[in-house]
C-alpha cells in the first residue's frame, strides 16, 4: 500500500505553461502519474505537455477532469493564492513546489485552511520536492520534482520490506531513497514536507499515516536545524509509533543565527539546534544516524535486513 497518493490519483499542474511546470508535468506523466490537465489563468482552451487540456481555473479543471491532486509551480508572489484556489475547488492533495513564498502569506493560508470546510484538504510544502508512491512498470504516482528512477516499488524490493520517508530537504531525501534502494528496501511513499518555517503537513501527520499503513515496515525521518518540529515528532513517536524510525538531523555544524539555504533552517535565540533534536529523537526511541551516508544501512539494520 501507500499513503495519500497512488495510481488512481488524478493530477493537475497549476502553472503548467511555465517552463518548470511543463518540464515536471512531463516527467510525472512519463513516470506513470495520471496527469489530467493543468491551470494557467488566461490560457484556458489551449493544450500543453503532450496534448493536456489547460483550464482558466482550478474549479473548471476539477469539474472537467475529476482531478483530486494538484502540483503548484506558480511564482512565489502568486503561490499562496494558487494554494487557496486549489483548496476552494475541493482538491484533496495540494503539493506546493514553489520556493520563496513570504512567511506571512503562508500564515494566512494556514489560517484559512484551518476552517472546517477544509478539514479534508492536505497541503504538502511549500518549498518541497513533492510526494511519490513508487510503482513498478509505470504504475506509480510521482507528484513533484524528484528523480523518479532512483525509487524502488515495494514489489521490486529484494528484501521484501518497504519503508516510508519524510524529509524537510529535497536532495537529502534522494540520498536516503538511493541508499535504501541499494540496501534492498522498497519505498511505500516518500514525502518532502519542505524547508519553510510555516508549511502544510508536518512530521506527525505523515508518521500517523505510515504507522497505519500495513506495507510500511519502518520510516526514515530527515530533519534539520530550526524550529521544534522534530522534538514534537519525537514525543509523538515515543507514545504512538509501532515501527522503527531512523532519523538524521542536518546542520550539526551550522553556525547559530544564519539561515542555511532553507528559510526555516536557522538556529535562533538558542532554539532549533541539531543536538537538542538528536537527543529528543533518541529519547523517543529513534535510531539517529551520525552520518548522512548511513541512512539506508541504519534503516536496514533496524529492520533486520542484511
Amino acid at each position: 500500500m501507500s499513503i495519500l497518493v497512488d495510481g488512481q490519483t488524478r493530477l493537475i499542474c497549476q502553472g503548467i505553461t511555465g517552463s518548470a511546470g511543463a518540464f515536471h508535468t512531463k516527467q510525472c506523466k512519463d513516470y506513470g502519474t495520471q496527469v489530467v490537465g493543468g491551470v494557467t489563468p488566461g490560457k484556458g482552451g489551449q493544450k500543453a505537455v503532450d496534448d493536456l487540456p489547460v483550464f482558466n481555473s482550478c474549479l473548471e479543471a476539477v469539474s472537467k477532469t475529476g482531478a483530486d491532486a494538484t502540483m503548484i509551480f506558480v511564482p512565489p508572489a502568486f503561490a499562496a493564492d494558487a494554494i487557496l484556489e486549489a483548496a476552494d475547488a475541493g482538491i484533496r492533495i495540494i503539493v506546493a513546489i514553489t520556493e520563496g513564498i513570504a512567511v506571512q502569506d503562508m500564515m494566512k493560508v494556514k489560517q484559512t485552511l484551518s476552517l472546517p470546510r477544509y478539514k479534508d484538504t492536505i497541503l504538502i510544502g511549500p518549498n518541497c520536492p513533492g510526494i511519490i508512491t513508487p510503482g513498478s512498470a509505470g504504475k506509480g504516482c510521482k507528484i513533484g520534482i524528484m528523480p523518479g528512477y532512483i525509487h524502488k516499488a515495494p514489489a521490486d524490493a529484494e528484501s521484501g520490506k518497504s519503508i516510508g520517508i519524510i524529509s524537510r530537504s529535497g536532495t537529502l531525501t534522494y540520498e536516503a531513497v538511493w541508499q535504501a534502494a541499494k540496501c534492498g528496501l522498497g519505498q511505500t511513499t516518500c514525502i518532502g514536507i519542505g524547508g519553510d518555517p510555516v508549511r502544510g503537513m508536518n512530521f506527525i501527520d505523515c508518521l500517523e499515516r505510515f504507522n497505519a499503513d500495513e506495507q510500511t515496515a519502518g520510516v526514515i525521518m530527515i530533519g534539520e536545524i530550526g524550529g521544534s518540529d522534530e522534538e514534537q515528532a519525537a514525543a509523538w513517536i515515543k507514545t504512538n509509533m509501532k515501527k522503527p524510525v531512523c532519523a538524521f538531523i542536518a546542520g550539526r555544524t551550522a553556525p547559530p543565527g544564519r539561515r542555511m539555504g532553507h528559510a526555516g533552517a536557522i538556529i535562533s535565540g538558542g532554539q532549533g539546534g541539531a543536538e537538542a533534536k538528536i537527543e529528543a529523537l533518541r529519547a523517543g526511541g529513534c535510531t539517529v544516524a551520525d552520518s548522512p551516508a548511513t541512512l539506508g544501512a541504519t534503516m536496514a539494520a533496524a529492520l533486520g535486513v542484511k
Binding site: S169, A250, G251, T253, G261, D290
Partner: peptide
Amino acid sequence: GAGLAMATMDIIKL
C-alpha cells in the same frame, strides 16, 4: 540542495 549542503558540512566534520 540546502539539506544536503548542511549534511555535507556535517560529514566533513565527522
